[in-house]
Design a protein around this nucleic acid. Structure first.
Lengths: 339, 339
DNA sequence: AACCAGTGTGCAAACGATTGCGCCAAATTA
DNA sequence: TAATTTGGCGCAATCGTTTGCACACTGGTT
């Protein structure tokens, strides 16, 4: 009963006109008379006609699908980013094919393969932590399928990407602490290999310098983001000849570890500032007094927009004049509301 | 330059055989000679031939896509569930079309519409909190597209669903507390309208009764899950003539609020048990001593498996003999490891 | 010599929608 | 009145793949 969806053919047969007329009528083509249009549209509505997307995709040689590969949806940065991607895709009539690499380079490679066999029209990627080779992405370029990276950018030339610049947010953060009266500010940073660590450090330095303070490198300590490593860093801070009165931490986890450790030593009064990645942290007894926000939703939207623009861009005649989008979303300091 | 992907036609032309032979050779059809098969496969590999999925989907009248609508990816229950869904879909050669309702009934309706125009082969849904009408799902049934609900199940007859039974986990939780020596155990439950609240209460009662203790209804207090409401419930607990020495809370947020409130009153020694929904909670200074786990990944896998089974099931001759899958994934108590 | 079985291959239709081209009639113009 | 425009519509090809059917061989059995 009421089984197969209606097709354009059936409409044509019932109305005793040709399928081309029906198609044109539904698409408001100028060469179709008003009465015919209305008759067709009426019947289409009655039959609950909906165009078969697979047929259209097939005809156009396009899938209207964008692939999205990201490390972990359970990280709130990514679950928020995917909302932005989804919203744009929806608005621009694209569909999202989502997959998680779970920070596994092998799996990421497989997923990229699958995206290719699925013939996505474009790819949005935030690369896995363990990824060290990038040929699988290069393949896409060869077949002219645009790839846009976001947040976790591979060290490649000539790519499109959207990422946040943590320098500005960090600058604001340190400035905020200085304005609050702190003179000695520490930073528990991430591994030096990460671009993100570098940006944080640069922001820190700029803030110090622009306030006519001299930058003390020994107050910026790297850690590997584990609790143990955070505690080691904290020990170094606390034994420093200039013990910091405020500390900027690489992320909320590190802040959590550091704050807990400080309390376990019965130390209070140190102000912490972090980078927002755990929404739950605001519910907690102790939380950073301010946070650098990276606007994942906004980044997701932007990246999706760029990707779809690229998909629909007429092919550039010469490869040379190809422009690469390198969009930087500025980060921003959000000061916690007092309870 | 290496533009369009290779097609079966090109292979046929190069090898001077017909497309049907090529197709059959690639699919290992028995009527094709060994030599021909090998020649075809060799060339296909050389040309990086991959079958055009859109063409195949179009031909079969199937999309090999399952739609997934869930409330919020940032809730870890769902982000874990989607991993299970993805994994099964990948394994069984389906593709996932994901969308979030953000707990908005209107949006959910729109998304269901979109899924229909996209002609998904099946639908997996966890309904939004604000959804109160269900016709949009009924539509799918009419056109014979299977729908499987998971976790948040609508109050409908004759539906497929996968959900966890919180009764068993709650039973274990209360039992655990009793074994630990507590005689008076309180429960801060959710709204009575929720099935989940009911299951928790039943588990609580069963545990008490099976330990020959009498059930005191005044020790099970409902709240609306807000902090204020949790505090009200806690006040009632603490002023109870039999002040509970252990409390089971509806979820981790409620546990967080309650524990914080207890500490603010300088109360310690109350044992809390909760239902796992915030992975971060184990990182915190104070956390429940045990948690009822609902295995979202497992639920997601199960739901996806059932859906794909339904999609591929030969049509039942009579509507009557249609069987409905009502799968219950038992919940389970996980006792926190001591640090 | 006629028949059959098996093996290997090609022809052509089908899936649903779009679109360039051509055709016919009515309306306008010369 | 004849010539030209134009509004309205149909024909048929096209996209890539699968598949039922027909056909042409070869080799073996009556």
């Amino acid at each position: 009963m009421s089984n197969k969806p209606a097709t354009i053919k059936e409409i044509a047969k019932i109305l005793k006109i040709s399928v081309s007329t029906v198609s044109r009528a539904l698409n408001d083509h100028s060469s179709i008379g008003l009465v015919t249009k209305q008759r067709v549209k009426k019947l289409a509505a009655d039959l609950n006609y909906e165009p078969n997307q697979r047929a259209i995709q097939f005809l156009h040689g396009k899938s209207f699908v964008i692939g999205v590969i990201l490390p972990e949806l359970s990280e709130s940065f990514f679950s928020e980013a995917i909302s932005g991607i989804e919203d744009i895709a929806y608005k621009r009539n694209y569909t999202v094919l989502l997959a998680q690499s779970h920070d596994d380079a092998e799996r990421e490679k497989l997923l990229v393969e699958k995206m290719k066999t699925q013939r996505v029209d474009g790819l949005l990627v935030s690369v896995s932590k363990t990824t060290s080779t990038y040929e699988h992405f290069e393949m896409f370029k060869k077949v002219n399928i645009p790839v846009v990276f976001f947040d976790r950018i591979p060290p490649l030339k000539d790519i499109h990407y959207v990422a946040s610049n943590l320098e500005t947010g960090t600058y604001e953060a340190v400035n905020f602490l200085l304005k609050k009266g702190h003179r000695t500010i520490g930073m528990i940073n991430g591994p030096n290999t990460l671009l993100a660590s570098h940006e944080r450090k640069e922001g820190y330095i700029k803030a110090m310098v622009s306030n006519r303070l001299k930058f003390d490198p020994s107050l910026v300590i790297s850690c590997d983001l584990s609790e143990a490593s955070t505690i080691t860093a904290m020990d170094a801070m606390l034994n420093h000849k200039r013990k910091p009165a405020a500390i900027v931490t690489f992320n909320d986890y590190v802040a959590l570890f550091a704050m807990r450790y400080a309390r376990s030593l019965n130390l209070s009064g140190i102000d912490f500032v972090s980078y927002a990645n755990l929404p739950i942290i605001s519910y907690m007894d102790y939380s950073p007094i301010a946070s650098v926000e990276q606007f994942p939703y906004r980044q997701g939207k932007k990246a999706a927009d760029i990707l779809i623009d690229l998909i629909n861009k007429p092919k550039s005649q010469s490869e040379v004049e190809q422009a690469y989008f390198n969009i930087v979303v500025e980060s921003e300091l959000i000061v916690s509301k007092l309870p």
